[in-house]
Design a binder for these strands. Structure first.
Length: 385
DNA sequence: GAAGCGTGGAG
DNA sequence: TCTCCAAGCTT
């Protein structure tokens, strides 16, 4: 071993990635040793998380290999979603549909119901479409290259790289929010997000190893999730602390830099919770695309800017309608919503209008209802569903 | 390239 | 309470 010992300042001995530490932009920082993938992998071997979809290094010693279906399913579920939220859904999906062919053969409505509550519902539609594409176009086996994977519905650059690396152990560079944070800190990237994305990707690619790329990808994400966290990073435990320029600068938690976010507007609307004498609730299907696309809902009017006030919405059935006290609040990614809930009690035997159906109390929990409508129904019924 | 698209948990 | 956000993709 030659070269990178403490106090060795002979730049001619440094490997290529270190050159960026000596570039003009880094002049204000002391030279730091480059981050070594092997150090991260050694940390991962001892400190990795045990996750339902993960094949740990020790599992592999026992002959367990990654199942591309489970890798893909977990990666799609984890898009913009926490590990804690995904676990029970992953178990439910893999129990009910153990293979991609099983999922391909499932009715889309059943997939939407099983996905209800997890959010970003276009993922569920794309999940189904992707399973069908794999079954139909690839003989039921996932393609192994990023280029082929990224052509599948709902599989973008991140997910394609993750499947290639984790399921097929190909040296793909996986860049998610965790990796962006780790890289932005290690290299002290000053450009704000999202401007810095291309630079971060380029830097991340310089580190991707040929050895154990799947474990390396998961190690990067575990590092970001458990130590290199958005707030109060646990730098003292980090295998790359000696290489981290953000740490050297004294404020690692301020990376990646971000531009101020726009304020979230408030919208208002009215929903009608029609309750039949037996407790059934009147539902309908939302349009296939757009907000909460393809999911079920209670009928209601348009959601408009709060300054315009809630527009008048026609009840789905004639009868006695009373306003429920208070409003139901729900915050989406890009706006806050306040719903006025109207309740109407309907006699037995009243038929559902065209396009609607009555959902019995025992069926409500299993309906493809987004959380906002579960809240509204709960307010209308005076009990959770 | 920017905007649209959910949710529940952490701090 | 409120802000932020967690393994992004699509259009």
């Amino acid at each position: 071993m030659t070269g990178l010992g403490v106090g060795n300042k002979a730049t001619v001995l440094f490997s290529p990635p270190l050159s960026r530490y000596l570039s003009p932009m880094s002049a204000s920082f002391p030279p730091l040793p480059p981050p070594r993938p092997a150090d991260l992998l050694a940390w991962y071997d001892l400190n990795h998380r045990r996750l339902p979809w993960r094949v740990a290094p020790s599992d592999r010693d026992d002959g367990v290999v990654a199942d591309p279906y489970r890798v893909w399913l977990s990666e799609v579920m984890l898009q913009q979603t926490t590990v804690a939220a995904v676990k029970s859904y992953f178990e439910a999906f893999t129990n009910r549909w153990p293979s991609v062919r099983d999922l391909a053969a499932a009715p889309e409505e059943e997939v939407m119901k099983a996905w209800a509550g997890l959010g970003y519902y276009s993922r569920a539609r794309n999940l189904k479409a992707c399973a069908e594409a794999v079954a139909r176009d690839h003989g039921g086996r996932f393609p192994e290259t990023e280029a082929a994977l990224v052509r599948l519905p709902g599989v973008g650059p991140y997910t394609a790289a993750a499947i290639a690396a984790i399921a097929f152990d190909r040296p793909a560079t996986v860049v998610d929010g965790n990796v962006e944070r780790v890289i932005a800190r290690i290299f002290a990237v000053e450009d704000p997000m999202p401007t810095a994305k291309p630079e971060i990707r380029r830097l991340a690619a310089t580190l991707t190893p040929e050895a154990r790329p799947g474990d390396y990808a998961q190690a990067m994400m575990d590092l970001g999730a458990t130590l290199c966290t958005p707030k109060k990073p646990a730098c003292a435990l980090c295998p790359w602390i000696a290489s981290c320029r953000a740490r050297a600068g004294g404020a690692p938690e301020t990376f990646p830099r971000r531009s101020p976010k726009a304020a979230r507007p408030t919208r208002v609307g009215t929903v009608h919770v029609a309750v039949r004498a037996d407790g059934a609730v009147l539902l309908r299907r939302r349009p296939p695309k757009g907000l909460l696309g393809g999911m079920s809902e209670v009928p209601g009017g348009e959601w408009r800017e709060a300054s315009l006030g809630a527009g008048a919405a026609a009840p789905p059935l004639a009868g006695a309608w009373r306003r429920v006290a208070g409003v139901v609040e729900h915050t989406f990614t890009h706006f806050h919503l306040e719903l006025t809930v109207m309740r109407g009690d309907v006699a037995h035997g009243v038929a559902a209008p065209a396009g609607f159906w009555w959902s019995a109390p025992s069926d409500l929990p299993g309906e493809a209802l987004p959380t906002v409508f579960r809240k509204a129904i709960a307010a209308g019924l005076g009990r959770v569903i």
